[in-house]
Computed example of a mutant assay.
Amino acid sequence: MPGTASPSRRSNPHWLAAGIGVALLVVWLAVMALAIRDAALAPDATGRMFVVFPPGLDDTAMVNRIAAAGGQPVRQTWIDSVWVVAGDRPGLAGALKDQGALGAYGELPVGMQLAGCFAWADAKVGQIFTLTP
């Protein structure tokens, strides 16, 4: 028919929504990458810290890298590649990074006030984000 557009010519609003969704995801990832980079401890930091290793590295390799950096593994967190590490060696955070850690972080400023849809979580879940042994 002369007055109707073919289906291939009509604009599809789902493509617009998908494009906006992808754009928001890209912006969110970029902001999170900057926030994580800025939250990392300085290379000269020492004391108790969270250390993030590349995913897929086995536990023995992570413990060996922690020991080689002069730190003491306190415990592994519920995320396999994240450890709580302690040490008094000056520059422990930098030494861990030299051993292949992706980053070292202080205690996370996260509490159950950020629970959102997971507000049912009890007080035990808050212990996941503390540096206590």
Rank of each mutant, 00 (worst) to 15 (best):
G3I: 03
K124L: 06
P133H: 01
R10V: 02
D88N: 06
L108F: 11
A30W: 09
P54G: 12
V31N: 01
Q113L: 10
I36V: 15
V85S: 00
T60G: 11
D38E: 12
W83L: 12
S8G: 03
D80Q: 13
A61P: 04
G47N: 07
V125H: 11
D58Y: 10
D59M: 13
D88I: 00
A93L: 12
A95I: 13
Q76W: 00
V31I: 11
D38A: 14
Y105V: 10
R89D: 08
K124A: 15
V51M: 11
A121R: 15
M32D: 15
M112L: 15
A123M: 05
A95M: 14
V82C: 09
A123R: 05
V22K: 04
P109I: 04
A86S: 07
T4S: 02
I20S: 03
A104R: 02
V26N: 01
G56T: 14
W120R: 14
I128K: 08
W120M: 12
L16S: 09
G47T: 04
A104Y: 06
S8Q: 09
V110A: 04
A5S: 01
F118S: 08
D98R: 14
A5C: 00
F53H: 11
G126N: 12
V84R: 01
T46P: 02
M1L: 02
D38R: 11
L92V: 05
D58M: 09
A35K: 05
G47W: 07
S6I: 00
D38G: 13
F53N: 09
L108H: 04
A67R: 14
A123P: 00
D58I: 14
T4P: 00
P109E: 09
G116Y: 11
P43S: 08
A93G: 09
A40G: 12
A42L: 10
V27G: 02
V84I: 10
G47A: 06
W15H: 09
G21N: 04
